[in-house]
Amino acid sequence: MLKRVHFPTSLLPYLLVAPQVIITLVFFVWPASQAVYQSFLIEDAFGISTEFVWFENFSYLASDEQYLGTFGRTIFFSVCVAVLSMSAALLLAGFADRIVRGATTYRTLLIWPYAVAPVLAGALWVFMFNPTLGIFPYILEFVGIDWNHYLNGSHAMMLVIFAAAWKQIAYNFLFYLAAMQSIPRSLIEAAAIDGAGPVRRFWDHIFPLVSPTTFFLLVINAVYAFFDTFGIIHAVTQGGPANATTILVYKVYNDGFVGLDLGGSAAQSVILMVLVIAMTVVQFRYVERKVEY
């Protein structure tokens, strides 16, 4: 009897998913395959002479010390950005969760930076930290720090890490706050009755209970640091000094759009694509299943 109600095969379901499939094909699959094809070519900027070289662009990258250095730097940068912005957000969310009076104002103010475009965020930090005109180098001089991110690679790296982390705090804050507010009040109150102070309650109850959010944010922040920080780096350091802040995605841009080496740049973006796919798989397969409470 049940089989009778089964829908007859019709075009309708295909039509309904068609827009999504077409969008994916046109805006993802097609450009991605173009990038893969381009990564097998060595050609001049205008595309007049083209040579098909199979994996030469990739083997060049594998032997290029600059590229390998960029890899390590990207990982360092991403870990710093994720840890810094997530811990700051966790702390702020922890406080915001306890606040009763003026909570909305407080929260709105904390969410604001998220609305700032990366390039603008970068520009703000550039002005504040300009070695000649900025306010921070002026203050730092009193404690004996000669700030110059144009010259000092560590200064430049710190600057882009701070700028990128600052930008992401708002986003992390939103998720942490939502996670904390979904924790049943009774649980926290019970702990309070048992004599646990705010710090104890945070570490023993709230922190473990928001751990799924932490893992989710970890992946999101890693992806953010890997790909979305281009605007900040472009505005603040342009990858310098001496490549100290060139991360993978910036090198793709630099080699492709500045250097007009399209094959080499495409090969790098193919590697990046593989990385994103791997991260997504890890998130869905591993992290989401493991985190339980």
């Binding site: 010259l151 310098g240 000094p241 001496a242 630099n254 500045v258 250097g259 007009l260």
Partner: peptide
């Protein structure tokens, strides 16, 4: 050729010298 990139290379090496 590729002098846009080469200038960057020179910039990078000179910055390493100044540092």
């Amino acid at each position: 050729g590729n002098f846009v990139q080469i200038r960057d290379v020179i910039n990078e090496e000179m910055e390493a010298l100044w540092a």
